[in-house]
Design a protein around this nucleic acid. Structure first.
Lengths: 191, 191
DNA sequence: CATTGGATGTAGCGACTGCTACGTTTTCGG
DNA sequence: CCGAAAACGTAGCAGTCGCTACATCCAATG
C-alpha cells in the first residue's frame, strides 16, 4: 500500500471540508492520525503536499465529468446538465476548492494558475465537444464554451455564498432558456 | 482630521494591493507609517478594522456605480456597460477584493456574508432599474438581473485568473449579443 | 505650573507556523 | 537471525501571529 497516496487521499478529504486557505500541517496531520513530521517526511514540504492534493482533486473532477454522458439535445441542455453536476451538494466541496484555487491564483499566481487551468480544462473540453455535436458553427464554439463555463462559475459562486438556491436556480434556468431561444431563432432564420 | 478614517483609507489602499487573505497587522501598520499597537488602539481589534475597510470599499463601489449613467438602449448594452466598468484595470483591485470576500464568506460565513451582499446590492439595483426601464416584464427582471450579475462575476473571475482578456471579452460580447437577440426575438413575436 | 488624557513606542506574551535533529521502533532482505 | 533501511515519535528551532502591559511623550486645561 502506498502510504503517500493514502495520505493524499485523506488530505483531500480534509481540505474539502476545511478549505485550502488557512491550511496548517498539524491539525491536518492529527486528522490523518499522523504528525506534521510524517507529512513533511512523505511530501518533502507543504507546497508539494498541496500540489498533490490539488492534482488528485482535478483527476477526480475530470473522471466525474467523463463518466457522465447525459442526453443533450440543445445548448440549453448543456447548461442544465453542467449546472446539475456542479450544483450537486456532494460536489460542493470540490467546487469550494475550485473557487479557492481561483482566488489563490489571483493574488499569488505562482503555481496556482496552472492548477486552476487544469480544473477548467475538462469542463471546456466537455462543452466544446457538446457544442460541436449540436452543430454550432466553429467560430461561435470557443466564445460560447467560455461564456457557459464562466457563467456557471458565477452562478456557482453566488450559490455557494448566498445559499439561496432557488434564486440561483432560476437564474441558471433563465440562462439555459436564453441559449435555447437563441439557437431556435438562428435555426429559423437559416431555413 | 479623523485619524481613524485616514487609517481606514490607507488600509483599503494596502488591502487592494496586497489582498485580504494573508493580511497581517504588522506589515500593514508599517506600510501606513504606524505600528500594530496603534491599529489595535484605533480599531480595538483586527476584525473591526477589516470590517471598516470592507465597508469603505463597498461605499466607494456604490458611488462609482451611481455616478455613471451610461446610454443604455438594450439589455446587451446593460451587460456591455457592466463589463466595461468591472473590467477597468483601475477597478481590478476592488474586484479582487470582492472575489476574496466571496471566497472568505464561503469557507467561514461569519460576518463575510453580509459584507458580500452589500457589495452585490448596488449592482443588483442598477441592473433591476435598467431592466425595468427597458420594459422587461416584471417576472423576468429578477432572474435576469441575477443572471447578468452572476455571469459578469464569472467572466471577471476568469479574467482575473487567466489574464487572457481578449478571450474573456469575446465571451462577454457573446453574452451581450445573446441578450439582444433574445429581446429582439421576443419583441418581434409580440408585434 | 501641575494635571490629565490621548497618542505612541518597546517589549513581550502565549499560541501557532513550517520544518528539522535525533533517537527509537518496525520491517524486511540476505 | 542479523543488520540495514525505512517509518515514526519527541522535542525543539526560529519565526509570525494578534494582542497587551507598561512607560513615555505631548498638547490642552484648570
Amino acid at each position: 500500500m502506498d502510504r503517500r497516496a493514502a495520505l493524499t487521499e485523506g488530505a483531500l478529504a480534509y481540505v474539502l471540508e476545511h478549505g485550502l486557505i488557512g491550511l496548517s500541517l498539524r491539525p491536518l496531520a492529527a486528522a490523518l492520525g499522523t504528525s506534521d513530521r510524517m507529512l513533511i517526511y512523505h511530501f518533502a514540504n507543504k507546497e508539494t503536499l498541496i500540489a498533490e492534493v490539488v492534482a488528485l482533486a482535478n483527476r477526480r473532477l475530470a473522471e466525474s465529468i467523463d463518466e457522465a454522458d447525459p442526453p443533450v439535445r440543445t445548448v440549453g441542455d448543456l447548461v442544465r446538465y453542467a449546472w446539475r453536476v456542479v450544483n450537486d451538494p456532494v460536489a460542493h466541496g470540490a467546487m469550494r476548492l475550485y473557487l479557492q484555487m481561483c482566488v489563490l491564483s489571483v493574488h499569488e499566481s505562482d503555481g496556482w494558475r496552472s492548477a486552476h487551468e487544469q480544473s477548467r480544462e475538462p469542463w471546456l473540453i466537455m462543452l466544446r465537444t457538446g457544442l460541436a455535436e449540436l452543430a454550432i458553427p466553429q467560430p461561435r464554439v470557443e466564445p460560447l464554451a467560455d461564456l457557459i463555463l464562466d457563467t456557471v462559475d458565477g452562478l456557482l459562486l453566488d450559490s455557494l455564498v448566498t445559499s439561496r438556491p432557488a434564486r440561483v436556480d432560476a437564474a441558471a434556468a433563465a440562462f439555459a432558456d436564453l441559449l435555447d431561444h437563441d439557437s431556435a431563432d438562428r435555426a429559423a432564420t437559416h431555413l
